[in-house]
Design a protein around this nucleic acid. Structure first.
Lengths: 252, 252
DNA sequence: CGTACTATTGAGCGCTCTCAAAACCAGTGG
DNA sequence: CCACTGGTTTTGAGAGCGCTCAATAGTACG
């Protein structure tokens, strides 16, 4: 319906390397004019540091956040001080979609390392999206994708054992990092073993033991937070997720 | 912005008891005219029966589905014949939101008992929503809510033990049924013990044992699929979900 | 009334958690 | 440079929750 000059995500990225849009996880086909409109409502924030919060549970929801560089974890503080890590967010990934419904953040978001984050005021975004059908559609897809990912996670927590969980986690990290142009086999984990375990529903000790075992088995080389994947295929098989779902990309 | 005569969800329900809209889980504030427009694109289907599929994994995504009466389970068929039950869907609840992104259903939806289901062709819905801001907003909220619910489920599978899981499941059923005007303390479960266990990440035997124990403890009376809750408060405490989040309703 | 399915109950085992301690690391200050 | 300190990670040993296997009981349906 909108037949104006449509450019692809990749082109946008090349054409406008430093603009926030290139960092958005909205791989959308928008015309250049609309890209600018979207870009104009995005706030760039000063760099945040380890431990800083994007928002805390209970706060009013105002904006979505997109990781430009660095990483963020979202977690739900439970009673008696414990917490459930809900996710780790890498560059290009969006945070806060779960808060639209209640207009209130149910979870907290904490920066894991020095990071650059974009803020998208939701009210303004919604108004903008109303006038750009393809943006609207991308937003639906984004929300839907979040649901799919949660679904995958449900399957992981409901059916997989410790070994499969950690393998799935590592494969996920590998894929997501490589999607951003980073190495798929050599990376640093910004989160602690404790946070990984919490996220995967495992005890710290179990995670640690598995890292050791994976290394002994030659699947990877690990030194503290530095992970080098030696046999990605084996990890994928172990994770049990048929690569079909994760591999297929959209042409937009 | 839209100051035309706005009527609440409850009013709609009274005014138009048999219309599909009253069944939609879109508790939205739409003007009467828009309600009709929405209603006009909704397809009512003949009653479906136990075992019928709304869709299967792999099929192209065309429509969202809303349960009018009865119940539906969604599940992801995994390799080697096993399956992961992803959710049970009661009257008023929507199915298929996870398929928007890939335009393809990743899971299957099977009717658990004789049910009436509304079909909402997504393409037409999206067009309609583009011209009705409040509908657009409700759609965002709906998608967002789905994410929140998945998040709750992640917490359940990641942190809760068997007892807490079944308690949470029963409380959830109770709340969702009562929201539809059905009894919060006396209901029939349309799904098997096996399906409950699968959903909660537990073995059938564990579920069965817990039902027995809950009954022995006076929390509920259970006869096969017929459940009578005797002590809802105790179940809520056991589930460990602070009722704050689930109780608060929206005024729309 | 027999068949197939679902649910319940029991016994034993294994995966993962818990508890505990040691090793390692980063930062600080003497 | 080294000792000290607080944190994280690793490693070990033991226990328990929930799974598996197996048998019985109950239910639906022809």
């Amino acid at each position: 319906m909108n037949q104006r000059k449509v450019i692809s995500f990749e082109n946008i990225r090349v054409a406008c390397k430093s603009c926030t849009l290139s960092q958005l996880c909205l791989p959308m086909g928008l015309c250049a004019e609309d890209v600018e409109r979207l870009d104009s409502i995005v706030k760039r924030s000063r760099p945040l540091h380890r431990g800083d919060h994007l928002f805390r549970g209970g706060e009013r929801f105002r904006s979505l956040y997109v990781v430009k560089t660095g990483s963020v974890k979202t977690y739900a503080p439970s009673e008696e001080g414990g917490e459930q890590v809900l996710g780790f967010h890498l560059p290009g990934e969006i945070i806060g979609l779960d808060a639209i419904d209640q207009s209130c953040h149910a979870c907290s978001a904490k920066v894991l390392e020095t990071s650059a984050i974009c803020e998208i005021p939701f009210q303004r975004f919604e108004e903008l999206a109303a006038s750009i059908p393809s943006l609207q559609h991308q937003m639906y897809r984004l929300l839907s994708k979040e649901i799919s990912q949660d679904t995958d996670m449900l399957l992981l927590l409901g059916k997989k054992n410790a070994e499969e969980r950690l393998a799935a986690f590592l494969v996920s990290m590998s894929k997501r990092l490589s999607k951003r142009g980073l190495s798929a086999t050599d990376f640093y984990l910004s989160m602690s073993r404790h946070e990984i375990g919490n996220y995967l529903g495992l005890a710290v000790e179990t995670v640690s033991r598995l890292f050791t075992r994976f290394q002994d088995e030659g699947l990877l080389k690990v030194d503290r937070k530095h992970v080098q994947v030696r046999n990605l295929t084996a990890l994928e098989n172990m994770a049990g997720t048929p690569p079909s779902a994760t591999h297929q990309q959209h042409s937009n």
